[in-house]
């Protein structure tokens, strides 16, 4: 079985990190995984996205044009990528910045008010981790414990940030709603 997903937003939102945490979790589970960033003449505030492909067999093409799962962290990403999601797929949108829906009836759509929750926790910097919590809830991809382990591992040198990130992942997981 192979599973693919695309994380999208603008530069500075921690989009690439969301994909990296999922990729690290896949590695810890012993899966094959490929993480591919969008790269080009980008700048802060420009578009950013990454794709992650996870499988039990070696990953063939790591380039995904039509993902099964999309996380849209801002409005332009929603407009650009929601029509590319495969029928039967899933979209998670950051309702803080994405007021519209995909207008698609052939997939399931979820939302999370990631910016509001992150601000409530004290810093907008954990918006991506809130959304990641929502993503593991609606995709069922990995357990909360596994993602906690990865955050512990990645933030071992920045203990001051660990607690708020752990709160963010839990708040995101419980606040994710189907629309």
């Amino acid at each position: 079985m192979q599973m693919d997903m695309m994380f999208t937003g603008f530069g500075g939102q921690g989009i690439l990190m969301m994909g990296k945490i999922i990729a690290l979790a896949a590695l810890k589970e012993g899966k094959e995984v490929a993480w591919v960033p969008s790269y080009g003449p980008e700048m802060r505030g420009g578009t950013a996205y990454c794709t992650v492909v996870i499988g039990d067999e070696p990953i063939g093409s790591p380039i995904i044009q039509n993902p099964m799962n999309l996380v849209a962290m801002n409005q332009p990403s929603m407009e650009k990528f929601s029509q590319l999601v495969k029928p039967g797929g899933m979209i998670l949108k950051n309702s803080s910045l994405v007021p519209v829906s995909s207008h698609r009836t052939d997939l399931t759509e979820y939302e999370i008010a990631a910016n509001e929750i992150a601000n409530d926790l004290g810093t907008v910097k954990v918006t991506n981790v809130v959304a990641l919590g929502a993503f593991i809830e609606c995709s069922g991809i990995f357990s909360l414990d596994l993602i906690r382990d990865i955050l512990n591992q990645e933030l071992s040198k920045k203990p001051a940030l660990l607690d708020i990130n752990l709160q963010a992942i839990e708040r995101g997981k419980s606040a994710c709603v189907s629309i």
Binding site: K20, A23, L27, E32, V33, A34, W35, V36, P37, Y39, I59, P62, I63
Partner: peptide, 9 residues
Amino acid sequence: GLIGQMMEP
């Protein structure tokens, strides 16, 4: 560019 930019185990 893909081999350079991609992350894999």
